Amino acid sequence: MRQKFSPLAFVSTSIFAAIALSVAAEESTPDSSVQASPVFGVTLPPGYRSWQFISVAHEAGNNNDIRGILGNDVAIKALRDGTLPFPEGSIIVRLAYEYVPSDRNNAIFGREQSFVAGAPTNVQVEIKNTKRYASTGGWGYGQFENGKANPSVKIINSCFSCHTKLPTAADLVFTSYSK
């Protein structure tokens, strides 16, 4: 049996597809209207808080923070497939928080053993674009506090100097994918 063509269904499907493409483009393209970090011009990518989980990390010492690391679809696919170096357009975002004991949880457990994310400290962004960031191994960096780019050129330049200490096989990325 032959189905009838429905103009309304066609229009509805076309509108839905256009919205989906628009949202996908917004998720992967940094918002140029947002304040950019110095040196690399990196901005907070729209929708990054909805990206997929890569891993967590705890930095002791001076930072004493806990970090959640997220990636856009390009970075996640590369990590899952074991594709290194990362492809163009990969973006990795690190959310850092104070690493604090949980009084509530510790009261239940009867000893100090539970730690949680406290106040946010900063968000760091790493974007792969080998042409734009050729002098820094193809990666551009940014750091943000309270949604605003940290204006310190010294801090932003220090990103690359630490990342270059990693083995070449890591493609200047600290975090491995947690399965």
Rank of each mutant, 00 (worst) to 15 (best):
I92E: 00
V93K: 01
R94H: 08
A96E: 10
A96M: 12
Y97D: 07
Y99T: 07
V100E: 09
V100T: 13
V100C: 12
D103E: 06
D103C: 02
D103K: 05
D103M: 05
R104M: 12
R104Q: 13
R104F: 15
N105W: 13
N106L: 13
N106I: 08
A107E: 14
I108D: 04
G110K: 09
G110N: 09
G110T: 10
R111V: 06
R111F: 10
E112C: 02
Q113F: 08
Q113V: 08
Q113K: 09
S114I: 15
S114F: 13
S114H: 13
F115M: 09
F115C: 08
A117Q: 14
A117K: 13
A117H: 13
A119E: 10
A119R: 15
A119P: 07
N122M: 14
N122D: 14
Q124I: 11
V125D: 12
E126H: 06
N129S: 05
N129V: 04
N129H: 15
T130E: 06
T130Y: 11
T130P: 10
K131L: 14
Y133E: 03
Y133D: 03
A134I: 01
T136I: 02
G138Y: 13
G140I: 01
G140V: 01
Y141A: 00
Q143E: 02
F144K: 00
E145P: 04
N146M: 04
N146D: 02
K148Q: 03
K148F: 08
A149G: 07
P151W: 11
P151C: 04
S152Y: 08
V153K: 10
N157K: 10
S158R: 08
S158E: 05
C159I: 03
F160A: 00
F160R: 05
H163N: 04
